[in-house]
Simulated scan of single mutants.
Amino acid sequence: MCGNSMSAPLPAIVPAARKATAAVIFLHGLGDTGHGWASAFSGIRTPHVKYICPHAPSIPVSLNMKMSMPAWFDIYSLNHNAEEDTHGIKRASENIKDLIDQEVKNGIPSHRIMLGGFSQGGALSLYTALTSQHKLAGVVALSCWLPLRNSFPQALVGGANGDLSVLQCHGEADPMVPVAFGRQSAEMIKSLVDPANVTFKAYRGLAHEACPEEMVEVKRFIEKRLPPV
């Protein structure tokens, strides 16, 4: 991925219905764009919250026989012990931190900004939140895993989110990212932040996708963590 975040088109945005006093930055999965998630959030929007759904740049993906597709970083294999694209993950995380900085400059304090994502985007949102110097409102992590998990807890040093609130949701029938991997990630996260603030919800019969019940849970989490001010 280019270090320059201009390598991807401008994010899809669902503006707040009134003055935005909070923001959700939500990252799509591999091969997707932000448009579908912007549409999903427009269906569960909260009036004072702005939803920002960036698009990943197109890069060659090893898992896809090196063909280019929208991706936040390279993926070599879906095996949970596979080698990871350490440089790409860290570079993508810096780009997301730049987006957070931009919203802070726009007048939304960081503790009123929530990160989230689906699959690869969820993995990046977890890594970014845990290593951010900004105090964040929380993370919504759907059908995903904690990347570079062997670099924690060292990566937390100086991070501002020791009491981070995390909502993790996962389909029990996920053939791409097994639910066991999601559960293991949740346990790892509980060892890094206050475990009382980490919620893991599994959905019976759900594959590698989101469902309406899950989106209701996401809406509740956003409203609890980002109330009107």
Rank of each mutant, 00 (worst) to 15 (best):
M1N: 11
M1R: 11
G3L: 12
N4Y: 02
S5L: 14
S7C: 15
A8V: 10
P11V: 07
A16L: 11
A17R: 15
V24K: 05
F26C: 07
H28A: 11
G29P: 10
H35N: 13
A40S: 15
S42L: 10
G43H: 13
Y51C: 09
P54V: 09
P57A: 15
I59R: 00
S62N: 13
L63D: 02
M65L: 15
M67I: 12
M69P: 01
P70Q: 06
A71M: 08
W72E: 07
W72S: 03
D74T: 08
D74W: 00
I75E: 03
I75D: 00
I75R: 05
Y76I: 10
N81P: 00
A82I: 12
E84S: 09
T86Q: 11
G88I: 06
S93R: 03
S93H: 02
E94M: 07
D98W: 05
L99A: 11
E103C: 05
E103Y: 07
V104E: 09
N106V: 00
G107Q: 11
I108H: 08
G116T: 03
G117N: 06
G117W: 06
S119R: 08
S119C: 09
Q120V: 02
Q120R: 05
G121Q: 00
G122S: 06
G122Q: 07
A123N: 10
L124R: 05
L124S: 04
L126V: 02
T128E: 03
A129V: 01
T131R: 02
Q133K: 14
Q133N: 10
H134A: 07
K135P: 00
L136W: 01
L136K: 05
G138V: 02
A141N: 10
A141G: 08
C144P: 05
P147M: 08
N150C: 04
N150R: 14
F152V: 02
F152E: 02
L156D: 01
L156A: 03
V157R: 11
G159R: 04
A160T: 04
G162N: 06
V166E: 08
V166K: 06
L167Q: 04
H170A: 05
G171S: 13
E172Q: 15
P178A: 13
V179D: 14
A186W: 02
E187R: 12
M188N: 09
I189P: 01
L192A: 03
A196M: 06
N197C: 10
T199I: 13
T199K: 15
F200N: 03
A202Q: 15
G205C: 14
A207L: 13
H208N: 11
E213L: 14
E214R: 03
E214C: 02
E217N: 13
E217K: 04
E217D: 15
K219Y: 03
F221D: 05
F221V: 01
K224P: 00
R225M: 12
L226D: 04
L226G: 05
L226W: 08
P227I: 06
P227M: 07
P228E: 14
V229A: 13
